[in-house]
Design a protein around this nucleic acid. Sequence first.
DNA 1: GTTGTTTTTGAGTGGTCGTTCAATTATTAT
DNA 2: ATAATAATTGAACGACCACTCAAAAACAAC
Lengths: 195, 195
Amino acid sequence: MPRPAKFDRETAIGNAVQLFWQRGFSATSMKDLELALNMRPGSIYASFGSKEQLFGMALESYAEASLARLTEQVANKPSAIQALAGYLRGMADEQAEIPPAQACMLVKTLLELGHHASELGARAEALLQRMEATFADILQRDGIPRASAQRIASRLQVGIMGLRSYFQRDIGAAQKADLANALADDLLFWTQTYR
Amino acid sequence: MPRPAKFDRETAIGNAVQLFWQRGFSATSMKDLELALNMRPGSIYASFGSKEQLFGMALESYAEASLARLTEQVANKPSAIQALAGYLRGMADEQAEIPPAQACMLVKTLLELGHHASELGARAEALLQRMEATFADILQRDGIPRASAQRIASRLQVGIMGLRSYFQRDIGAAQKADLANALADDLLFWTQTYR
DNA sequence: GTTGTTTTTGAGTGGTCGTTCAATTATTAT
DNA sequence: ATAATAATTGAACGACCACTCAAAAACAAC
């Protein structure tokens, strides 16, 4: 007997991701969201609870997609490390992606909200941690011992956070590719010296 | 004949830096500033023009201090590269600094505002560029050719941006020191291979 | 003490914020 | 058709936003 929802939940959250990713939490207003989701305030609150909860779902969705992209790129490759290096090199090409926000949404959230004062910031930090753990897993798959893998994973995440933040600057595609390649080279170097 | 201003301009801007650095532009309200500067709205607007202009001054002040700290640490050292490495290693110790905001204010601003849509974001980007140019200058002082110095400077800034963003996470002092040392080692390695 | 100049004050501006909820609309089951 | 149920609407809410300005206060010069 009930009336079915006319909007698609996944695409709605997808649109929310785009908005929140670009503008951040504070600078995104409910007005903006109403426009982007094509929903009126009542519907948004009935469906997602609050702006904060919606942001949480967007964050989770973003992280899930990022993690999926990573594991997919590494799956079934002979050398996990080489695959990881390829993943890094590919970061420069994401410039043509949908939103003109190159920086990681998790990092943007962590820097905007902080992990101590904000539930959302803490969740962003946890998701970053999960990413890093995945890097470590991948490295161990190539025989790198656990402790070394974790160290390299940390350095890798530092590099990625820096790289994508740097991409927020106004620089050319050539320099982007150059820096992404440089980070990939660093990774290969670390795996050799740390082993 | 005029009545002199009773507040100290520099300390006022210093307090503004602290607030803006921690909370960012959007999340800092005029109420917050009134409290931190111990000034009433009318005085703030008479002295600094607007919230945006005040943020601009705070940004400039922050960048100037950062640049001064860098050049001072490198001045009169036999090896500029070694001094630069020391500067990097010292980053882990800044955890005990006044505000619990480890990430660079310029990066936070760039990520929050973006360089395209915001005058403030564009200024943050310009100041980051100035930092990078200074890194390149320092490297050239040790005989590294111009092109290589610029490349290394870019990689260095990527590393620093990542490192300080990573420091925003909830990690121990030991890991901070470890990662700062790792970046310093990377710098030394780059200067050897790129020469 | 008086005058001249400037700073400081703080109540008040219109606007926007996130959020709510009674009314309306749309769909399904009978 | 009708009834039952749920999704959608949008006007309205109090709170807070950045900001203004006329009045009051504080100093310097005489």
